[in-house]
């Protein structure tokens, strides 16, 4: 399970996209890093049998498409409403991950989602035992996951 943490996050993302947005086809591939100015970054801390964080990077166009599908309305720009809806989706994906981990007797908890600013992250260069990034492609745009976890020593 620990070696498979990448798949757990990808599968959870796929489930949430399928149930909430009716998008069932997604693709994924590992990436080394991702950074652009045009995105909403959401960080969720994980504590328990695993410690660290996952950072969800939603490009603006993907974010707006997601909120448009959910609301049936047309959002043209990112604002506090859009950021809040996207944060809740990151929270829901993380909750799905916790459920799967618990089935393998790995017990963790998550903190509420927060806007992540890489430049303000004092632990940006910290090394993690389990560190992986992936790009998930969907019909409404890509999203990026940056998973950074340690097992308790």
């Amino acid at each position: 399970m620990m070696d498979n943490i990448y798949s757990v996050f990808v599968d959870a993302t796929q489930r949430v996209f399928s149930l909430m947005l009716n998008i069932s086809e997604i693709s994924d591939h590992p990436i080394k890093s991702f950074r652009c100015d045009d995105e909403i970054d959401i960080a969720i801390d994980i504590v328990g049998d695993l410690n660290g964080k996952v950072i969800y990077r939603f490009p603006v166009s993907t974010s707006l498409n997601m909120v448009n599908i959910m609301s049936g309305m047309q959002f043209q720009a990112v604002d506090v409403f859009v950021t809040s809806a996207i944060s809740e989706i990151a929270n829901i994906i993380s909750g799905n991950v916790l459920t799967v981990l618990e089935e393998s007797n790995i017990k963790c908890d998550i903190s509420p989602p927060v806007l992540y600013k890489p430049d303000e992250d004092r632990e940006e260069n910290r090394e993690y035992e389990l560190q992986t990034s992936c790009c998930i492609g969907t019909t409404i745009g890509e999203i990026y996951l940056d998973i950074r976890l340690n097992r308790p020593s």
Binding site: L19, M20, M70, F81, A85, I86, E88, I92
Partner: peptide, 16 residues
């Protein structure tokens, strides 16, 4: 902020 969270929460709660 409440509106955005409520939107996503309700869809997930009912759909999942």
């Amino acid at each position: 902020q409440f509106g955005g969270r409520l939107l996503a929460w309700l869809i997930n709660h009912v759909a999942a």
